[in-house]
C-alpha cells in the first residue's frame, strides 16, 4: 500500500494533470498563438504609428472585464478540481457551472465588441492592425467557445457521478484546456490593448 502510494505521488510529480494527449494539443495551440503574437509584434515594427493610433479605438474597459472574467473562471475551475479530489461531485459541478458563467460573460462582451467594430464597417482588410486584432481575438474567442463546451461535458459527467477522488482525469483534462485559454488571453490583453 505504501509502495503504491509512493509510486502514485511520484507519477503526479512527473506528469501534468489530466490526459497527456491534451497537453500535446495545448502545446500545439500555444505554438500557434506564439507565432501570432510574434508576427503582431514584428509587423508593428514597420507600422508603429498605425498600430498606436488604432489601438486607441479598442474598448480597453471591455478587455478588462474579459480578463477578470477569464481569471475568475480559471480560479473556479481550480476549485472544481479540488472538490472532485475530495469526492464532492455536487460542488465540483457548481464551480464548473460558475466557471462557464464567467466564460459566458467573456463571450457576451466580446460579441458586443465584434458587433461594434463590424457595425462601423471594420473588417479584416480595413488595415494591418485590425487584421491582426480581429484574427487573434476571434481565434481566441473560438477557443473560449470550445472550452465552455468541454467544461459543460465535464460538469454533466460529474453531475452523473462519473468521477471519483481516485479517477477524475476528465476533470483535470478539461481544466488544463480552460487554463490554456486563460493563459493565452493574459498575453493577448496587454499586447493588443495596452503596449504601445
Amino acid at each position: 500500500m505504501n509502495n503504491s502510494t509512493t509510486i502514485s505521488l511520484d507519477e503526479v510529480r512527473r506528469y501534468p494533470p489530466g490526459d497527456l494527449a491534451i497537453w500535446v494539443f495545448i502545446m500545439a495551440e500555444l505554438l500557434v498563438f506564439a507565432i501570432f503574437f510574434s508576427a503582431f509584434a514584428f509587423t508593428r515594427m514597420n507600422n508603429v504609428e498605425l498600430f498606436n493610433e488604432f489601438q486607441l479605438t479598442l474598448d480597453r474597459q471591455a478587455a478588462l472585464i474579459n480578463t477578470i472574467a477569464l481569471i475568475t473562471s480559471s480560479y473556479f475551475v481550480v476549485r472544481a478540481v479540488l472538490c472532485i479530489q475530495e469526492g464532492d461531485n455536487q460542488w465540483c459541478v457548481r464551480w464548473l457551472l460558475a466557471a462557464m458563467g464567467m466564460g459566458l460573460i467573456f463571450v457576451v462582451v466580446k460579441f458586443y465588441e465584434f458587433s461594434h467594430h463590424f457595425g462601423n464597417g471594420i473588417n479584416l482588410s480595413t488595415n494591418t492592425f485590425y487584421m491582426f486584432y480581429l484574427s487573434l481575438t476571434f481565434f481566441h474567442f473560438m477557443h473560449v467557445i470550445l472550452g465552455m463546451g468541454i467544461l459543460g461535458a465535464v460538469a454533466y459527467k460529474a453531475h452523473k457521478g462519473g468521477y471519483t477522488p481516485e479517477d477524475h482525469i476528465g476533470v483535470e483534462t478539461g481544466a488544463s484546456y480552460w487554463h490554456m485559454v486563460d493563459l493565452v488571453w493574459l498575453i493577448l490583453f496587454p499586447l493588443i490593448y495596452v503596449m504601445r
Binding site: 503526479v12 512527473r14 506528469y15 501534468p16 494533470p17 480559471s74 488544463s176 487554463h179 486563460d182
Partner: peptide, 16 residues
C-alpha cells in the same frame, strides 16, 4: 502563476 498554480505544473519535476 497560471502555469504553476492553476495548471498544476509548479510541483512537477522534469520535462513537463
Amino acid at each position: 502563476l497560471v502555469g504553476a498554480y492553476f495548471m498544476g505544473l509548479g510541483g512537477i519535476r522534469g520535462f513537463w
